[in-house]
């Protein structure tokens, strides 16, 4: 699309003959290849190679610390042992549970906040400061954030100290040993990290909605709540789905927060499981690789569903690209 307009510009500018034009575009062509070469080289080395290599290793029984020992081809044995491992399924369940609670709360907060900030009749003041604060948790290392909250919950931590001070007979207690509390805490921490980010993405989507729609609705007597449910939400469908599915893809790889927070079996996500197979104990690279490939396929399936939905819903996609200022 763009290339043709580009060439068009070239020809308009030049008053030379057709032939000269052709020579010119041919001579520029090589710069195209020249300019993309670094990217392609880095892609081959740091992206394609590791992925293919992981794929190959997933068919071997490679293990042990020595990187020069390749292992034997066992084809699908590693996959079988992953699928047959109850810890793998438990880690998937844990991941989905932690992610599910997180994503529900996160989107609830994000949508309500975005609707409030976007409402023209409310005219909330100090939006800049609120956005600044709400996005702040996203900037600081997930590892550090996990650490901070762990600090709050451990026996010598702040919450226990407060309870000892204000609750009679409170005995310091390790909250991190209780499965539900721990999982819920990780979910809440993830919500805390991401709600500002989701809110800003949704606000950008709302900014792309035609303001005359709201005007018309106001003239027809629709209040803020009605406007939100009948205009904002339907038109935000695509971007909501988009944010939701990127969150799922990210959630499946969840690692740092649960790892730093409480390295117990209660927070063992798939990524932590893979790490433990591949890089601790006897280093089952084959098994770790097989699990990685399974997760890769799941994530790609989810992503393609996303792209399919996005391409089906053309009208809202236009709104989305408008919101992105493209």
């Amino acid at each position: 699309m763009l290339s043709s307009s580009n060439i068009g510009n070239v020809s308009n500018f030049d008053t030379k003959t057709q032939k000269a034009k052709k020579i010119k575009s041919i001579s520029y062509r090589k710069y195209g290849y020249f300019f993309v070469t670094p990217f392609i080289l880095f892609f081959l080395m740091f992206s394609l190679y590791p992925t293919l290599y992981t794929f190959i290793i997933s068919f071997t029984d490679r293990s042990g610390l020595d990187p020069n020992v390749f292992g034997n081809f066992v084809w699908f044995d590693s996959y079988k042992s992953v699928v047959g491992d109850k810890f793998f399924w438990r880690s998937i369940l844990t991941t989905l549970k932690i992610w599910g609670v997180n994503v529900t709360l996160q989107f609830l907060f994000a949508i309500v906040l975005a609707a409030i900030f976007n409402d023209q009749s409310l005219k909330i003041k100090g939006q800049g400061i609120f956005k600044f604060a709400y996005y702040l948790p996203n900037i600081v290392t997930a590892a550090t954030v996990g650490y901070i909250f762990r600090q709050l919950l451990q026996p010598s931590g702040t919450i226990n100290t407060l309870l000892v001070k204000y609750v009679d007979g409170w005995v310091r207690k390790n909250f991190m040993l209780e499965k539900d509390i721990v999982q819920l805490s990780v979910s809440l921490v993830l919500t805390w990290i991401w709600y500002g980010n989701t809110m800003i993405v949704l606000l950008a989507g709302m900014a792309g909605i035609d303001p005359t729609l709201y005007e018309a609705a106001r003239i027809d007597g629709a209040g803020s709540v009605k406007q939100f449910f009948y205009i904002t939400l339907p038109l935000l469908k695509t971007i909501l789905l988009y944010a939701f599915i990127t969150s799922l893809a990210g959630g499946l790889q969840m690692y740092d927060v649960p790892f730093f927070f409480v390295p117990t079996s209660h927070t063992q996500t798939v990524a932590i499981r893979i790490y433990q197979w591949g890089f601790t104990g006897v280093n089952h690279y084959g098994k770790a690789a097989a699990a990685s490939i399974i997760m890769l396929i799941i994530t790609m399936l989810i992503s393609s569903v996303l792209f399919w939905i996005m391409s089906v819903d053309v009208s809202s996609t236009k709104k989305y690209s408008k919101a992105k200022g493209v």
Partner: peptide, 13 residues
């Protein structure tokens, strides 16, 4: 779309 972070084993090698 592709989560390259998951190819840790290959990256390590």
């Amino acid at each position: 779309m592709v989560p390259t972070q998951l190819s840790v084993v290959g990256f390590y090698a």
